[in-house]
């Protein structure tokens, strides 16, 4: 009886430990391949070269163009998602009726659940042509259109976490503000948002991290041309798109081209890891505050 209990506990432990193994595996895989990569390509070139052309005859291994593509689409996405998401959160937690909330929230969740390949199609076939009506110079592949779509896709991420944070603000704070003659709007912006700021920050960080790692939307609608630019109208390439592009082709295992996807992946992983850890500790901090 007791041995059975012990065995079960060990099995359960093994399940949990698998998560640690996964993390270690990711780090190991990225590190091993990247070490090999950097033995052939100097780190300095990787970080400062302004061209990324590993698949061409004239090879350059500067990650900056891929990073600029990644950041450009992410910035566009957050510029869209933050005001909309935060407003949605305020509206749902302070203004909307209960029935409205309970119908809108699941629909918003579906928005976040639709496969991103679908959004890629949407950006390519709806948003880009639509924008071209106003900006005829807009290229068929560009950063703005997938950026916008990505932004709308991550609205639920920001709105639901921010709403939880707003919801957790003690009632007494609201009442205090109303008692001083504040309007709903003033209360929301001057009292509630500051009070819920940690939660809102967490939601933004997670949204940024999600946008940085997003793959299919940009792979379909942003193009595959690494380019160090902040111009949202021209084709670019993100880190993720590059990995997909190489994996989809026939790059032999062990070649330098093969290793590039791991060094590119490592750059992405490090950035998202830092963001995730920041959000984890912010979250932990404010949980402690309320408890």
């Amino acid at each position: 009886m007791n041995t059975k209990e012990k065995i079960i506990e060990w099995l359960l432990f093994a399940c949990a430990a698998l998560c640690v193994l996964t993390t270690l595996g990711i780090i190991a895989v990225l590190a091993i391949q990247s070490v090999q990569f950097f033995s052939e390509v100097p780190l300095k070139d990787f970080l400062t070269d302004t061209q990324w052309t590993p698949l061409f005859a004239d090879k350059h291994f500067g990650i900056l163009p891929l990073l600029s593509g990644t950041f450009l689409t992410t910035i566009i996405a957050i510029t869209i998602a933050l005001p909309i998401g935060l407003t949605t959160a305020i509206y749902l937690s302070e203004y909307a009726s209960k029935t409205f909330r309970s119908t809108v929230k699941p629909v918003l969740e579906i928005l976040a659940a639709i496969p991103t390949v679908v959004y890629g199609y949407f950006a390519l076939t709806v948003v880009t042509p639509f924008l071209q009506i106003f900006f005829p110079s807009l290229s068929g592949f560009n950063a703005i259109s997938p950026g916008i779509v990505m932004g709308l896709m991550i609205v639920p991420l920001i709105s639901s976490l921010s709403e939880d944070a707003l919801y957790a603000v003690p009632k007494s704070l609201r009442e205090g503000a109303y008692a001083l003659g504040s309007s709903k709007l003033q209360t929301a912006f001057r009292v509630l948002i500051p009070a819920a700021s940690s939660g809102i920050i967490v939601s933004i960080i997670l949204a940024v991290s999600r946008a940085l790692g997003e793959t299919m939307i940009v792979a379909i609608a942003a193009g595959q041309q690494p380019r160090l630019t902040l111009d949202p109208r021209v084709p670019i390439e993100t880190v993720t798109t590059y990995i997909v592009q190489v994996s989809g082709g026939d790059v032999p295992h062990g070649s330098l081209e093969y290793k590039t996807i791991f060094s590119a992946g490592l750059s992405l992983f490090v950035i998202t890891l830092i963001l995730n850890n920041i959000s984890f500790f912010v979250k932990k901090k404010y949980r402690e505050q309320y408890e």
Binding site: T22, I26, G213, L268, F269, L273
Partner: peptide, 11 residues
């Protein structure tokens, strides 16, 4: 939970 899905692909 926050690791981009494509990284899992590399793993």
């Amino acid at each position: 939970a926050g690791v981009p899905s494509i990284i899992y692909g590399l793993l």
